[in-house]
Design a protein around this nucleic acid. Sequence first.
DNA 1: AATAGCAACGCAAGCGGTTGCATAAATAAA
DNA 2: TTTATTTATGCAACCGCTTGCGTTGCTATT
Lengths: 332, 332
Amino acid sequence: MASTIHDVAKLAGVNPSTVSRVINGKASISEETKEKIYAAMQQLDYHPNSVARSLASGLSGAIGVVMDAHDANAFSNEFFSRSLFAIEQVAQAKGYNVIIANSAKRMGGVSSIENLMLERKVDGLILPPSTVKPALLKKVDAFPYVVLGQPDIARQGTCWVDVNNEQGSALAVEHLYKQGYCRIAYLGGDGGTGFVKRRIKGYHSALKSNDAPMIFPTDGTTQEAERNTADALRLPQPPDAFLCNDNITAFGALQALKKAGRKVPADIGVAVFDNYPLAMYTDPPLTAVNVDTAMLGEETARLLFQRIERHITNRQTMLSTSLIERESSCRM
Amino acid sequence: MASTIHDVAKLAGVNPSTVSRVINGKASISEETKEKIYAAMQQLDYHPNSVARSLASGLSGAIGVVMDAHDANAFSNEFFSRSLFAIEQVAQAKGYNVIIANSAKRMGGVSSIENLMLERKVDGLILPPSTVKPALLKKVDAFPYVVLGQPDIARQGTCWVDVNNEQGSALAVEHLYKQGYCRIAYLGGDGGTGFVKRRIKGYHSALKSNDAPMIFPTDGTTQEAERNTADALRLPQPPDAFLCNDNITAFGALQALKKAGRKVPADIGVAVFDNYPLAMYTDPPLTAVNVDTAMLGEETARLLFQRIERHITNRQTMLSTSLIERESSCRM
DNA sequence: AATAGCAACGCAAGCGGTTGCATAAATAAA
DNA sequence: TTTATTTATGCAACCGCTTGCGTTGCTATT
């Protein structure tokens, strides 16, 4: 049924290698033969077999995007799926396919990352920071990969693209100061690992020197955010502004503030990391540190392709955030 | 660097075909040779080249999941990404990879769907209902594919898996009646295409015969949901309950009701389609028609593999929904 | 003891492309 | 006109694995 390059060659009266060259735009082929070949391809509805092509060329024509999702929620992580969208776009423009894999699962003792790499299913990998561990690095090292996020393990030569969490926090804190808030707290997060660590660092750095840092970690639920907010308000010197680690946390904070009868933004200011669609629909709408996830995915994919094509060997990119000012923090 | 099946064969002192048979568990090989081969594989850190394997076997070892995302939002669609998680799990258990593709983009006039199929990059496809059109069906017909969702174009032989939207609506309406609401409105949706059509059909069917249907379509924004809710309340005979097409819509409805001073659930009942994480964090928490997206993805993937393995040729599956009763609709 | 049957493995032809090298024809340089 | 170049295409050897068929040696059958 499906025609091969030999069928095309026979119909066009040429050698398969000539057809191959026409398809790949290599060498010089006369216009005359080109046309004969195109006609034959058309007539036979020929589509090159990408598998055979990969075998011969040594390139799979696919990149792998791995995530460490342990449940469906992690998978539906807005941050990830938005980046994925951009990655797919860049890949498609390059004629590449995107294979997704969950690193959490293993087959026969070999992680899906190694599997994609060792069985030559992909030409490059986009990895989450959590998978970047010495054992893997040793195996992946000679393979083109880019980390989407900043890995905790520093290692020269590891390419990564991340949003500037420090700068984002600082941006929000400075904004809150400008709006006249003076006792700014950081609400949510696990207290300080991975990107939360960097956000808190940025929070610290932007705090005025005589202001005491107030950090209230949570387990990520709205409920605990609500509890912690309520507790914070009962402190002798309560915060008058909250920078929230994520939207779910901010949601809890807003509810606690409402129940406590505090007006936002008049009494208390609220800002949040990440501009989820939800953020503009709360009451009041939330000021948010905006992460350009499309750009993030795009940059990551581009960097990966540069590595695949050997144009570059080493680069770390930090994307700046912007602040979307909404009612929750603007009393002026 | 990377070792081949020939290297393994040479080291084990056997023929490559024997190694191949051991790897694939075919034919009868003596324990003795098996062990020699395993030892050689171990020593050389051998990993079969999946591309070569695909070429020889005629199977790509991948399935394609296509979506019709035109922007990042569609991509991050909770419904989709949760199903994707389950699909990837099933595929991984089968030793298959998952290639994602955006149908919106085209390369050289060939859609990404056709590309995946015609260039034999995948052994099967999971398609969104929107892509199921006669032109494509003709080409895809002989190829294993399953639609994730119910296609509008009926065609015998088309396999699909969908959630029972009609039943879901009916479930919610019946619940609202039981809670003593008697003027139930349907809020949101585009008025009646695709799954919205089926949800509205279920709404109609569950409505008591002497109750007039009230349908308020929106453009999907919270703002318009808010406006429409406010308008509805000013009607001579206003609704006393809203079944919302989605969470964003419900969010708007809740805000409108709050502004209008109506108590939920005392005065007005609210239920919503899809149990987003958001639904349990609103004030009050929303009663939601729950769609088991994990099951949806799992069933879809399973059905696809059955088709790939030629075990089945035709099946349509409708998954029932359940109702998660929360405060927004429970006044008893 | 002769034949049949089966287990264990080798041989080699693919699978459908790609690509270095060779060749023939056409053109340019000497 | 002869030789050096360039252009256009063919030849055939891979890429690494699978698989139908064939061979060898050994055990079971009569």
